[in-house]
């Protein structure tokens, strides 16, 4: 007998040299974006709270604005077939519908953009991916809001 060592209970003889040890641990699949002692502390004040409140408040207003909008555009008075330049021009002649559409534009865009910001925060793991996706999102949002507002304010029913 070359060795008098008895193997630990329940463990049979192990063949060959072990592949991994303390200095060379086996690879693991790390969970995404782990919380560590160094996890960045944000200094954004109450922004997240404001965003959370805005989602709920704008949602309540959007129920009226969007459902009303869909009803008028798609259901009443012959549905979509009535929509044309004249129909839009007729509605935007009244400040009431101008304000309605402007409010709906701003609220839906900011609500939708903030919702997508949430989704980017959920799914994009790397800081760089987040930066680019959010940059794209904010650019598209600002562009759409400004273009929409411009059209509502400068709409000219007499253009040819």
């Amino acid at each position: 007998m070359s060795t008098t060592e008895t193997p630990a209970a329940g463990v049979g003889p192990v063949e060959g040299a072990p592949l991994f040890d303390v200095d060379n641990p086996a690879p693991l699949i790390e969970a995404p974006r782990k919380r560590t002692k160094k996890t960045p502390r944000s200094t954004r004040g109450n922004f997240e709270m404001a965003a959370w409140l805005f989602m709920r408040l704008s949602g309540v207003v959007l129920v009226v604005l969007v459902l009303g909008h869909l009803l008028i555009q798609l259901v009443l008075d012959g549905g979509v077939s009535k929509i044309g330049f004249a129909f839009v021009a007729g509605r935007w002649a009244s400040p009431f519908w101008q304000v309605w559409d402007l409010l709906m534009l701003w609220l839906a865009m900011l609500h939708g953009a903030n919702g997508l910001r949430t989704i980017i925060n959920d799914y994009a793991e790397r800081a760089n991916t987040r930066l680019w996706l959010k940059g794209l999102l904010y650019t598209a949002t600002v562009f759409t809001i400004l273009l929409g507002s411009l059209v509502i304010f400068t709409f000219d029913p007499n253009i040819r």
Binding site: A31, P32, R33, K34, R35, T39, N121, D122, Y123, E125
Partner: peptide, 9 residues
């Protein structure tokens, strides 16, 4: 939310 981003408390 935690599954997707482990930095959430």
């Amino acid at each position: 939310v935690f599954w997707n981003d482990g930095q959430y408390f």
